[in-house]
Design a protein around this nucleic acid. Structure first.
Lengths: 217, 217
DNA sequence: GTTGGTTTGTTGCAATTGCAACAGTTTGAT
DNA sequence: ATCAAACTGTTGCAATTGCAACAAACCAAC
């Protein structure tokens, strides 16, 4: 597995590669590897660090008292996770973060980002600004999922989800980053009912799909 | 209607009242009143300003192409709205903000908060820090709603929602800030099915309620 | 290649939920 | 005080969805 190029990490946008090493030391960063299925952060854990996925994938899970676990969100290379807990006053996680495959994470001390640096390094202001942007975007992406989840039927949830993917990816061929089981989990719908509905939608000529690739017609 | 005390606005926490006036001018703030039902920000509008509710209430609505409108979130006195759009790079709103009653809003220029002040006023750092906290919290509150929405039945959605309220309010008597119709809208469930389920839950002795006040037993 | 475990597709049946229509209640404006 | 409009509760019926159980396909490890 290969790490994402640091220039392609949105949090570091606008920061010259030459300064990046200095910055990474300044904000107490460190890397850690996780095996497939390993828990990165447990519910109730304190989260003083922001995580950036360098390679692999992370799922945010929430388990309720009846043992039903649901997939709230997923995070891929270059993206942040745990930021919202790390920048809050109460830094206790309300969800569990799990590596769904072999994953490498870069951790950064949140306090070093939200408080202005003692040395007042110039790139510090830039990373704080980037952080604002990303926090806003993360909120918006949750609103987006709320919109999907508020659809009244399985069909409309699927359409809303696939449409969102289509917007992100440019191609006519939309590749879902989740397996069927995971997708059902993500949309909080019954897996077999979902398969049934997907079949109907294909029969009616609304969509087509092969494995994890979808096409809207 | 009376405005919330500025000392009770989380964004201004830790800022001495004497400095507040100076700050409010520095960050280009202005007030605006809205009548009941009036739209504050429309979908697709640019959102360069962060809104703070001084009195009244604001609902975040999302309408889809079939005309189904759903209530994503609500914002009361002292709370922010539009921050996530305002601090993002692309500042276009994806939802509509509506005053549900007579409402006064204090608007602040987001750019003045996320960029460090030219005058480098000391309280500027503090408001930026507060902003980080609040952005994190907002994200967490959306995750919270996602958790509620991912429940598989009306009953569990209601229980999850009422439990959330119970955590916020300390009292045994939980007052819902939404009417029945609004609540059904907020949880994306059928209103009459919700009423039916609430009745069943009362019959079974799980909860009790009178109008908008609930008690979990 | 073989094997065991996981994922996916299929289908009948039961249960929940949405829908529609209507009656009773509350609210707000004049 | 009166009236209209919006909100809330009720109920029968239809439709969607969840559930369970099983078969088929796929994957990974040896």
């Amino acid at each position: 597995m290969k790490e994402i190029n640091y220039n392609d990490i949105p949090l570091f946008e606008g920061i010259h590669p030459d300064n990046l090493n200095k910055l990474l030391i300044c904000i107490n960063s460190f890397k850690k590897d996780f095996e497939k299925g390993e828990t990165i952060i447990m519910e109730k854990d304190k989260v003083p660090y922001i995580g950036i996925v360098l390679f692999g994938n992370v799922h945010l899970l929430k388990e309720d008292i009846w043992g039903n676990s649901s997939l709230l969100s997923y995070v891929g290379p270059g993206e942040l996770f745990g930021e919202n807990f790390a920048v809050s006053v109460e830094q206790e996680s309300s969800v569990t973060f799990v590596a769904v495959e072999k994953t490498r994470v870069l951790f950064l001390a949140a306090s070093k980002i939200i408080h202005t640096c003692e040395n007042a390094c110039s790139f510090h202001a830039r990373i704080a600004e980037n952080m604002f942007h990303l926090l806003g975007q993360k909120s918006i992406s949750y609103m987006n999922k709320l919109e999907i989840m508020s659809k009244e039927s399985i069909r409309r949830k699927l359409m809303a989800y696939i449409s969102t993917l289509a917007q992100q990816q440019k191609s006519k061929y939309i590749k879902a980053p989740l397996s069927r089981t995971q997708l059902a989990d993500y949309l909080s719908i019954n897996r077999s009912a979902m398969t049934r509905e997907l079949g109907k939608m294909r029969d009616e000529g609304i969509i087509d799909f092969d494995r994890n690739t979808f096409v809207i017609k």
